[in-house]
């Protein structure tokens, strides 16, 4: 089933109050895309798995309140992004880490992470991305890796396209500067 057909089917299930069917379809259709979106934010697989589960729990909980004027895709990505940010903030708070320390640790973890499949160049790029402020990091990942259009991103992150373009501009500029050292 293609994305549009799938969205239509999900909307139909929600309209008919077939929430279980809608939910199962959502999980099957979006689990991978949401996972990769989350994974790029939280980096570690186990954390991504936790956040993905939390995301679907929220989806299930609020499915009956879903506003059919929005796209399912946008709504799901918004929940996933918020869950990932909340997860990171909680981890930082729990570990009482100062700003940037958490990202620094993640950066070190990457080298020994069995689920990191990148070569040395990709490792350098990921380390550069982890040096970005959180919002810029999310915008960079969405645009650079997933090629999500600013219009769509604007709905997901609830930020104006102008601000997103500025964030992406700062992000690529910083990354380019960082990687020039290598």
């Amino acid at each position: 089933m293609n994305a549009a057909a799938s969205e239509n089917k999900i909307s139909e299930h929600i309209s008919n109050k077939n929430f279980s069917e809608a939910f199962n379809l959502i999980v099957n259709q979006y689990k991978e895309r949401l996972y990769w979106h989350i994974r790029k934010i939280v980096i570690i697989h186990e954390d991504a798995d936790d956040v993905l589960q939390n995301t679907f729990i929220k989806v299930w909980r609020y499915l009956e309140n879903f506003n059919q004027n929005s796209k399912i895709y946008t709504w799901l990505f918004r929940i996933a992004t918020n869950e990932a940010i909340t997860f990171i903030n909680n981890k930082k708070k729990k570990e009482e880490e100062s700003l940037g320390t958490y990202e620094h640790r993640l950066s070190d973890t990457l080298e020994s992470d069995e689920y990191f499949d990148g070569d040395n160049a990709q490792l350098i790029l990921q380390k550069a991305i982890l040096k970005l402020p959180e919002k810029q990091r999310i915008v960079f990942n969405m645009k650079y890796f997933d090629e999500i259009k600013y219009g769509e991103m604007s709905k997901i992150l609830e930020t104006s396209t102008g601000a997103l373009k500025a964030s992406y501009h700062h992000a690529v500029k910083k990354i380019e500067k960082f990687v020039k050292q290598y």
Binding site: D117, G118, Q122, Y144, F145, A166, H169, I175
Partner: peptide
Amino acid sequence: SQEIETRIFEENIKKQFGNKNPFKVP
């Protein structure tokens, strides 16, 4: 001009590092 600059930086990064997903799952 900012958008053009963004594109140039982006192309430079892609040329050097690509944009392949470096993560994998169990």
